[in-house]
Measured scan of single mutants.
Amino acid sequence: EEEEKKKEEIARLLGVSKEDVERILKKNNLDIEQLLRRVQREN
Rank of each mutant, 00 (worst) to 15 (best):
I24H: 04
E22R: 02
L36G: 03
R12Y: 08
L35P: 00
A11E: 01
E9R: 09
Q40V: 11
E2Y: 10
Q40I: 13
A11L: 02
A11G: 06
K26A: 13
N29W: 05
N28T: 14
K7E: 02
L35K: 00
E19Q: 12
E1K: 12
N29E: 07
K27I: 14
L35Y: 02
D31G: 10
R37M: 06
G15F: 02
I10C: 13
E19L: 10
E19K: 10
E2D: 13
E8M: 13
E33W: 04
V16D: 00
R23H: 12
N43I: 15
K5F: 11
K18N: 06
N43D: 10
K18G: 04
L30A: 04
E3R: 14
R41L: 14
L36C: 04
R41E: 15
K7N: 01
R37C: 10
E1I: 12
E42L: 06
R23E: 13
E1C: 07
L35N: 01
E8F: 09
S17H: 06
Q34K: 06
R37K: 14
I32Y: 06
E1W: 13
I32W: 04
E4V: 07
K26Q: 13
V21K: 00
R41S: 15
R37E: 15
E3T: 12
R37V: 11
V39L: 15
Q34P: 02
D31C: 06
R12D: 06
N29H: 11
N29M: 07
E33I: 02
V16I: 14
L25Q: 03
E4W: 06
D31K: 06
E9G: 04
L14D: 00
R37F: 01
I10W: 02
N29S: 09
I32L: 14
K6W: 10
R38L: 15
V39Y: 02
K27F: 11
L30K: 02
L36Q: 04
G15I: 00
D31A: 07
K26D: 09
L35W: 03
L25Y: 01
N28V: 10
E19D: 12
I24W: 08
R41I: 12
R23S: 11
R23L: 14
E3A: 13
V39Q: 03
L14R: 01
E22S: 05
E2V: 10
R37P: 03
R37N: 13
E2G: 11
K26I: 13
L25S: 03
V21E: 00
V16Q: 03
L25W: 01
E1V: 13
V39G: 02
E9C: 09
E3M: 15
E33T: 05
K7S: 03
R38K: 15
D31I: 04
I10E: 00
V39M: 08
N43Q: 14
L35R: 00
R12H: 10
I10M: 04
L13W: 05
E42R: 06
L25D: 00
V16W: 05
K18V: 15
A11N: 00
E1D: 13
V16M: 08
N43A: 14
R12T: 07
R41Q: 15
R38T: 15
V21Y: 01
A11S: 07
V21C: 02
E9S: 07
R38Q: 15
L13N: 03
S17C: 05
L36A: 05
E19Y: 05
E4T: 08
A11D: 00
S17Y: 04
N29P: 04
L36K: 03
L25F: 01
K6Y: 08
K5L: 13
R38H: 15
G15L: 02
V21F: 02
D31R: 05
K6T: 08
N29L: 07
K27T: 13
D20V: 14
I32H: 01
Q34H: 09
S17I: 03
L36S: 02
D20A: 13
R23K: 13
I24N: 01
E8K: 11
Q40T: 12
K27P: 02
V21Q: 00
N29I: 05
D20K: 07
E1A: 13
R23P: 02
E2Q: 10
L30R: 03
I24M: 11
V21G: 00
E1Q: 12
L36H: 06
K18I: 14
K5I: 10
S17R: 07
V16P: 00
I10Y: 03
N29Q: 08
L36P: 01
R12I: 09
E9A: 11
E2M: 11
R38W: 15
L13E: 03
E9M: 15
L36R: 05
V21N: 00
G15V: 01
I32M: 06
K6Q: 11
L30Y: 08
R38Y: 12
R12F: 09
K6L: 14
E8N: 10
E2T: 12
N29G: 13
E42H: 12
I10Q: 00
L30V: 08
E33L: 04
Q34G: 13
Q34Y: 04
R37G: 13
E22P: 00
L14G: 00
D20Q: 12
E33V: 02
L25E: 00
E8R: 10
R38E: 15
E1R: 12
D20S: 08
L14K: 01
G15N: 07
L35G: 01
L30H: 04
K7P: 00
G15Y: 01
N29C: 07
A11I: 03
R38N: 14
L25C: 09
I32R: 00
G15M: 03
S17Q: 07
Q40A: 10
E33R: 02
G15W: 01
Q40H: 08
K18M: 13
E9Y: 13
E4N: 10
E22N: 09
Q34D: 15
R12P: 00
N28G: 11
R12G: 07
K18A: 07
K6P: 02
V16S: 04
A11C: 08
L13H: 08
R23M: 12
I24D: 02
K26S: 11
L13S: 04
L14P: 00
L14M: 11
K27N: 14
E42C: 10
N43G: 12
E19F: 05
K26R: 12
V21M: 02
E33N: 13
D20L: 09
K26F: 05
